[in-house]
Design a protein around this nucleic acid. Structure first.
Lengths: 135, 135
DNA sequence: TACATTTGTAATATATTTTATTACAGTATG
DNA sequence: CATACTGTAATAAAATATATTACAAATGTA
């Protein structure tokens, strides 16, 4: 199962991009995603830690973008919400006495690293503004 | 969480490539992966359905490759074990009355489709033989 | 000031997915 | 005919993801 972190975060950011002058509440955002507001606030906390958004507490509070959406790429959003693209690893440590077991994870890692590079290149070319303009 | 299906399958196939003249038992393979033998047999069932390997039941039975490892690419293995590369979707259906909610999944899908194309190209260029030669 | 609204965060519960285990029928080998 | 395998179903356990509840703290406004 892949978590919805990236999708949720990009949904939040698209809303904030669409309404750049408003502080949107987590309840409002949650209503668009159809997700619990606490989880929205958790992703917002992550965005705040990366200085992408800023929040205001109290009545009429909420969250708004603190960067220009043309200056942030999907690669950055990806990196904030996803460790790396990969096709998975077996759960347990493989047998180190088997020539295949000994090296499988290292060889998979190399493969996945290449994958990430290609995907990163793709995501780097798309700004949040680009993405939002599709709506 | 990403399941280990792809990693397990490629581990199995690497072993079969290394020992092309033997029928390897699921217990033996499981010992290399450090995984329950039943799960190995399940992935082998998948490989058999795709005519990549063949099994022999009974004493001294096991599984061996039924294709030339230079003629099968990681892309094919990927497609047998993975739906598609993606960065996830939010779990619940988004609000169709919101312009963003209405289109978010479609726009994410398009993004992910591009990603798959790039990754597929990469994987297409690597044969099982290539991968196995790294060990 | 008092109230309402909102964030921030912790604690806990539920749901979903992934992996593991158990069990056993069926098949081939020697 | 005993042994060592596969094939597969059923169930359990573990891991992860999402949801809910609760409440302190902040802030705008009557």
């Amino acid at each position: 199962m892949i978590s919805g972190k990236f999708a949720i975060t990009i949904h939040i950011l698209t809303l904030l991009t669409k309404y750049p002058n408003d502080y949107l509440s987590s309840e409002y955002i949650a209503g668009s995603i159809n997700l619990n507001a606490v989880l929205v606030r958790k992703e917002i906390a992550n965005l705040k830690a990366h200085h992408i958004v800023e929040s205001k507490e109290g009545k009429n509070g909420g969250t708004k973008l603190s960067v220009d959406p043309s200056n942030i790429s999907l690669k950055e959003i990806f990196e904030m919400t996803f460790e790396s693209i990969n096709l998975g690893y077996a759960k347990n440590q493989p047998n180190p006495d088997c020539p295949v077991g000994k090296k499988i994870n290292q060889n998979l890692s190399a493969l996945y690293a290449d994958m990430n590079q290609k995907v990163s290149l793709q995501l780097e070319g798309i700004s949040l503004e680009d993405f939002s303009n599709q709506f």
